[in-house]
Structures are given as structure tokens and as C-alpha cells.
Amino acid sequence: MNAATQPVIETLGLVKDFGRTRALGGLNLSVAAGEIHGFLGPNGAGKSTTLRVLLGLIRPTAGTARVFGLDPWADPVATHRDIAYVPGDVSLWPNLSGGEVIDLLTGLRGGADGNLRRQLIEEFEFDPRKKARTYSKGNRQKVALIAAFARPARLYLLDEPSAGLDPVMDAVFRRHIERVSRGGATVLLSSHILSEVEQLCDRITIIRSGAAVETGTLGELRHLKRTHFRVTGLAEPARLAALPGTHGISIDGAAAEFDADAADLGAVLAGIAEPGISGLSVAPPSLESLFLRHYSDGSGVK
């Protein structure tokens, strides 16, 4: 297969059972070379399990997983050579300092780039001399991020990496994602926050109950970007259906709820601007509402 067209990550019908619990139920995921891929899903959807399968840390019950065209379970060493990984819940050695852990993790992969290491420690405002025991969640996260970014890799597997970072540090994190992406690296970024994924990612896969329910570019998933409206006091709520770009209209007495496409927001706002309205709330698209509205019918695997 041509290296340029071969996906960096490809899973087909991935199934993972833990005893009687099914964590993954036939997951298909494809991440092309060079893209920043958002892996979006609520807690417990199977995001971390997928990343562990991709690292060959656990063996899939059924289905196949390929990373760089390799089976990570059969050949973890070759697979890991070009991977940088940040786990979702970073646990460190309490009696080692942050600096020692960074050196250990990069050393196991062949050594850090000294300048990059220094720059990252500075930008993340991190004190590498403290024992890991004393670090907060955000600081433990920084250790894993610095170790991951301090050395070039072809694939970055990041499991909810910005959880625990404050907004300033989050900006540093984004900058480095963009830096490695410009350098041609592939990034798989798991998250349960839609806006985070939206700002960074080229393509998104949404996972629920262990299976992918949507995948595509942000443009293709435009319906995810619908804004939710709740209006009370409209004289003729049924008229909403005639407005461009409105979806899922539900009317309950004087109150009406609907979603509107981003492109048609102007027309929608003009359409509902009438003297009688007594209440208006507008909610940006969130993963939660997305799941509530689109997938609450049990269409995912059970």
C-alpha cells in the first residue's frame, strides 16, 4: 500500500470485552497521516480503551487494529517507536522529581531534544525539582505533556490531555499541537468537550457506547454546530418551520424549542424578532445536548 494513502490508524470492527462488560462494540476508526483527529465521546464511551488497544496494552476481543500498518498487540515495540502518549489519568512515581520522570519517559524513547525540553518546561511554567508526590493533577498532566512533546514523534495519542490545565496552559498545549502538526505528525486527541475538538481538529469521530456514531470533517458534521434556541411568547410558533435552517422544532404551549444552522442564524434571528416574545435563550452546541438530542434513541450499541 502506498505510504501516503495508508491511514496511520485504522480499526475495523474493534470489540473489547472486560468480563461481561462490553467496552468496545465494533469500533471503526480511521485517521489519515498528518491530520489532527478529534475522538469525541462522553465518559465511559470507550475512548481510553481504544487508545490502549492502539498501544497494544490490551488485546482486542475481536476486530483488527493497525497503527502505521502494524498490529500493535503483535509488535508493540515497533509500533511504539514513533508514538508519544499522554494517558487520561497521569499517575507518577511519588518519590521521583518531575524532571526525573520527564527524562525517564523521553529516555525510554531515545532521549529528549534538550532545547525543546527546556522550552516546554519554561512555557508550561513547570518546576521539575519537586517530587511527583506533591504535584496537583494539572502538574502531573504537564509532566506527561512535556515528555510527549520534548521529542519528535510521528503519532501523538492524547487522552483528554487538557483536563486539569488552566486556560493559559491550555493555550500552550494548543500551540504545541499545532507545531507538531505543522511538522507533519498525526494527532489523535480524545475529549468530551466539543469546543476543544472543534478548535483543533481537522476531522472528528464521535463514539458512544463503544461504537463510532459519526465521523467526518467539521464541515461534514455541520449539523453538530446547530445552535439551540428556546423562545417563549411567539404569536405563531408553527411559523418557525418556514424559517431557513431550523430543525427539530418542538412546541409546548407558548414555548418553542428548535435548532438552527450556523449559516442561517441571521435569518432565524430576524424571523423570531417580534414584539410579543417574553423569553429567549440561545445555547451553543455542546456535546451533551448533541447526545441528548441526536442519540438518545438508543441507536448506539447496547
Binding site: 498501544l55 508493540p76 517507536r81 494517558p87 489519568d89 497521569v90 499517575s91 507518577l92 506527561a144
Partner: peptide, 10 residues
């Protein structure tokens, strides 16, 4: 959870 960090190395 630390083995996970270690064994992600090649």
C-alpha cells in the same frame, strides 16, 4: 497506571 506510561515506549 504508571506501567501504561512506561510500556508506551518502544
Amino acid at each position: 497506571g504508571r506501567a501504561e506510561l512506561l510500556l508506551a515506549a518502544p
